[in-house]
Structure formats: structure tokens, C-alpha cells
Amino acid sequence: MNTEKLRVRVWRSATRGLVTYDVPRYESQTVLDVVTFIQRQLQPDLAYRFACRVGMCGSCAMNVNGKARWTCRTHVSKVAVNDELEIAPLSNLPVIKDLVTDMSPFFDKWSRAKGQFSGSRTRHEDFARVSPESAPRKAADAGIECIGCGVCYSSCDVVTWRPDYLGPAALNRAWTLVNDERDTQTIERLRAVAGDAGCHSCHTQATCTERCPKHLSPTAGIAGLKRMTMKAAREGDL
């Protein structure tokens, strides 16, 4: 029988604060396993969010020992300090209950950054032929695997300082689209992401890039948007 224990402090609410639970340790245990154990065995009304459990859906992100992480792919052995964990909801987002945040502001900003693809062809036309070797396609590919987990947004100090800032994920999405040669909304998108609530607010601290579980670099995309908006301003398009 396993006797090793993990002491876990879980954020419940502003009034209750952090509540401590003892959870048995298992080999290859993830932080999501820990939260699931607490809810199934110790605290049935604990609210948290998950879906795929394999790092695809982006729904299980939480603050673990002060850093935003995807909990389904975070092994306890990598993050526990002295067999202790502190688990809290993502920062920079309203909390609905316990570990569940309201992601609406996060995805509204994707919309504000014109994160929707807008092509010119219909289904009756032939496929667009895009060379995977072209520089814009390579730039788009480098940022395309975002799963929308909100880890970067939660980790971004600029979002904390000025809540209207679009944030790394929305800007990364815009960067992939302005590099998509099939898209027709480049100028409108550059107007949407320029300015002090957009790419020009980024301080290039790169915490988003450091914490992104998919190892993307929103920082590089935002720097690219700054260059692109400057070019548009020079050409009178902004």
C-alpha cells in the first residue's frame, strides 16, 4: 500500500482561501490526477475544468506553485516542492468557482484581434497552393499549434497592468493569419492589433514564450506584428 502523501493547497474562494488536502502519491502522477483525486475522494463540490487529458484541448490550465501550467501534462514529480503543491485558478481572468475561470475575455480578444480566417475562394474552386517552404508559411507554421489554454495570457504582466491589452495568444493568432497568403483581411487585422492595447504594449519580457506548453513563441509573433504595422504605417495603410 502506498503511504507517500502529497500535501496540496487548493484555492477555493476569496473568503475560504487555500484549503489543504492530503493526496496519496503515485508514479507518473499528473497535477490533473491530483485535482481529480481531490474532487472524487475528498471534496465532491470542487470545481475544475478538463476534457482531453492528453494536452490537446487546452482546458485544464491552472496556476501550479505560482506558475501557469497545463495540468494534464505536468508531472507532480517535476513541480512538487518538499511534497507540497499549491493549485490556484489562472491569473488575469475572472474566477467562476474554485479552479474554473471565465475564458470569455480571453477569447473575446481573439475576436477583437480579428482571429478569424477570411479567404476569397469558395468550395467550388480549386485548393490554394501554398508552398510549405515560403517564409510566411514557415512563420505561420511556427505559431499555428496554439491550443488556447490561456497559460500565456495568465503569465503576462502587461495583461495584469492593463486589462484591455489583447495578450499573447490573440496576437499570436493574428500573426499566423497575416502570414497566411490566402487571407484577405491583413490591413484590417493590422489595424486591430496595432496601438497601445495591441502589439505595441508588449514589453518583450517573453514570459509567454517561456511558459507556453506547446513551445510556441508569441513574443516573436508580436515582434513581427510590430514590424508589419510599422511598414503599414509607412505606406499609409494604418
Binding site: 489595424r191 496595432a194 496601438g195 505595441h200 510590430k226 504595422t229 510599422m230 504605417a233 494604418l238
Partner: peptide, 15 residues
């Protein structure tokens, strides 16, 4: 930097 045009903001960043 309210009331500053996008073009001005882009230029400020450049400068």
C-alpha cells in the same frame, strides 16, 4: 495614449 492615432503609435514605437 488615448486619442493617439495608430500611425502615431506605430511611429513612436519605431522611434
Amino acid at each position: 495614449m488615448q486619442a493617439m492615432s495608430l500611425r502615431t503609435q506605430a511611429r513612436l514605437w519605431y522611434w
